[in-house]
Structures are given as structure tokens and as C-alpha cells.
């Protein structure tokens, strides 16, 4: 499992992100994303009900929580892929309410999907190139005149190849994305997201299904994003990974942010234990509960 990964180097953690006491909804020194009373219900089920949350700029923030906590739904709401019943949220000081998904992306907030969306019958390279923004050849009339966009296309090409190299996908560049393995698709999706030089990258379970050898390099990529000045918000179930790279952790349960803080202190928060064991605290420990206990052990486990 990816949990056995030993960090090659100890990443530099960003600290001093919050103002006052760390707790659910606490203020950040420099928030890039702020959500206020964002609520989404599906019939009778409240999937997301976030009172207030701020994501710190220039840091790596992890969003954790048990299955069905509402993490993916929250991602969808923030990025315009789903509409909340109520609430407002802003990115970089600009309101995102009623902004369609493609505009959110153009503002510099790029997300990936939990269920990977590789464009199967496009080559890996074309998948990458699609990620670049401001392409003049994407206009129907200009597309007819290759000399207008040829130069930009070559630049995009070079950038795509360089990124693919970093993600160890360069040998696959002329293959259909459909021929990639599940883990390779995760890598492709992440690399593709980076083609647009986003300011905030939101990754929904980027490591799921990626083999341990690659996990380490993926972690390095994420840390790299931070050193390049990007902000990262990612959903992850692997606590070792969270502890290893996250500067800040948001804990979600039943649609609410129940705890937040730096990775070490948040793990000691009783609300987190509650979040993972939930209502069936005293009930039989079924298969899923043993998994949760496992997660808790990882949580409480001190970092070496």
C-alpha cells in the first residue's frame, strides 16, 4: 500500500496560516477561497452544509472525512459543476456564485475528478494540449488559418511534453488515453490540469489507484506545485500522505466542517474521531468500521 512510502526528503511545512484559534471555520491570514453557508441537499439528504470555511493561499490543504461526508459534492459546488441550494463563495476575492464551470476554470481554479475523466479517443498529448488556456486556434474562424496558431501550438506542445516527462507519461504521448491504466489516467488528469498554470488546484483523491513508486513522485509533484506558488486543495483517504504533505487539514463529516488545523493537532481533535466512527460509536465494528479504526490508528500514529 501507498502507506509504506518513506519520504525521500522532509517537506517544508507552511505554518502560521490561521488567525486566532484553529477550529472549524477559523480565519486565515490570506485566504484564497472562502465559502459561506453553502448548502446542498439531495431530496431529504443534506450532502453539504458548510457554515464558513477558508482555504489558505500558497499552502497545501487536505480535505479529509469518511465516505459520503460530502467532499466531492463540496468540490462540485465550489467549481460550478453543481449548484447549491444557498450560500456564497468566492475565489481570489471574486464571487463564484452562478459562475459556470468553464469560467471558474478560466479564473485559475482547476479541479480533477474522483472518477477519472481521461478523453479516451484523444491521444495522451492531445489530452494535455486541451488543458492549455487562451488558445487562439480554438476559435472556429481562426482554426481555419493554421499560420495564426501554429507558433502557439508548438509552445503548448513543448510544454505538454515537458509535463508528461515529469509524470513519466512521455513514452505514451501518442497513444490513446483509453489505453492507459487507471493510475496512469490519474497522472494524466493531474498533468492536464497543470497545463493551464492554475492558481488553485483541487484534486479529488489524486493518489487512489496509483502505485507506491509513483505515489512518491506524485507527492513530490504536489509539493512542487506549492513551491511554484500554487495553492493545492486535495481530498485524500491516506492519512500518511496527508500528514506528510499537508500544511492544513479540513475535516468534513456529514456535510459539515467539524475540525481543522495543522496535520498534527487536528489528528488529536476528538471531533475527528467522532467523524470517523460517527453515530455507530458503540455498535458492532463492521468491515467499514475496522477500516475506520485503521484510519484512526494512522491519525494518532506519531510522525517519525
Amino acid at each position: 500500500m501507498s502507506s509504506n512510502v518513506t519520504p525521500t526528503s522532509k517537506p517544508v511545512k507552511t505554518t502560521g496560516l490561521h488567525v486566532g484559534d484553529a477550529g472549524p471555520g477559523c480565519r486565515k491570514v490570506d485566504p484564497i477561497l472562502i465559502a459561506d453557508s453553502v448548502k446542498r441537499t439531495f431530496g431529504g439528504l443534506t450532502a453539504v452544509d458548510v457554515e464558513h470555511v477558508e482555504v489558505p493561499r500558497g499552502a497545501i490543504t487536505a480535505l479529509i472525512g469518511p465516505n459520503g461526508a460530502g467532499k466531492t459534492t463540496f468540490f462540485n459546488l465550489l467549481t460550478g459543476f453543481d449548484k447549491p441550494d444557498e450560500g456564497k463563495w468566492e475565489f481570489d476575492g471574486r464571487s463564484l456564485a452562478h459562475v459556470p464551470a468553464y469560467r471558474v476554470a478560466r479564473m485559475g481554479l482547476i479541479r480533477t475528478f474522483q472518477l477519472t475523466k481521461a478523453l479516451g479517443l484523444l491521444t495522451v498529448l492531445d489530452n494535455m494540449k486541451l488543458g492549455a488556456k487562451g488558445q487562439s486556434g480554438e476559435n472556429l474562424f481562426r482554426s481555419l488559418l493554421p499560420f495564426i496558431w501554429r507558433k502557439q501550438e508548438d509552445e503548448i506542445d513543448a510544454k505538454a511534453v515537458e509535463l508528461l516527462g515529469r509524470f513519466k507519461l512521455d513514452t505514451k504521448k501518442d497513444d490513446y488515453a483509453a489505453s492507459l491504466s487507471g493510475g496512469q489516467r490519474k497522472l494524466l488528469e493531474m498533468a492536464r490540469a497543470l497545463m493551464s498554470d492554475p492558481t488553485l488546484v483541487m484534486l479529488d483523491e489524486p493518489m487512489a489507484g496509483v502505485n507506491p513508486a509513483l505515489t512518491q513522485s506524485l507527492l513530490d509533484h504536489i509539493l512542487n506545485l506549492k513551491s511554484q506558488g500554487m495553492t493545492v486543495l486535495f481530498v485524500e483517504h491516506d492519512m500518511h500522505m496527508v500528514r506528510h504533505i499537508a500544511d492544513w487539514v479540513l475535516v468534513m463529516a456529514e456535510g459539515k466542517i467539524v475540525a481543522e488545523g495543522d496535520p498534527h493537532t487536528v489528528m488529536e481533535d476528538p471531533a475527528v474521531i467522532d467523524a470517523y466512527l460517527g453515530a455507530h460509536h458503540d455498535a458492532d465494528l463492521g468491515a467499514t468500521d475496522t477500516e475506520h479504526v485503521e484510519v484512526l490508528k494512522e491519525l494518532i500514529d506519531d510522525e517519525q
Binding site: T79, F81, P100, A101, Y102, R103, A105, R106, I110, R111, T112, F113, K117, A118, L119, G120, L121, L122, D126, N127, L130, G131, K133, E189, R192, A193, M195, S196
Partner: peptide, 14 residues
């Protein structure tokens, strides 16, 4: 062609 494959993915790319 990207839209043919998965329009949400293309949307997410702006």
C-alpha cells in the same frame, strides 16, 4: 473531439 469523449472534463479545462 474532447466534448465527444467527456464534456465535463472539457468544461473543467475552461
Amino acid at each position: 473531439k474532447g466534448i465527444r469523449e467527456d464534456e465535463d472534463a472539457v468544461r473543467a479545462l475552461g
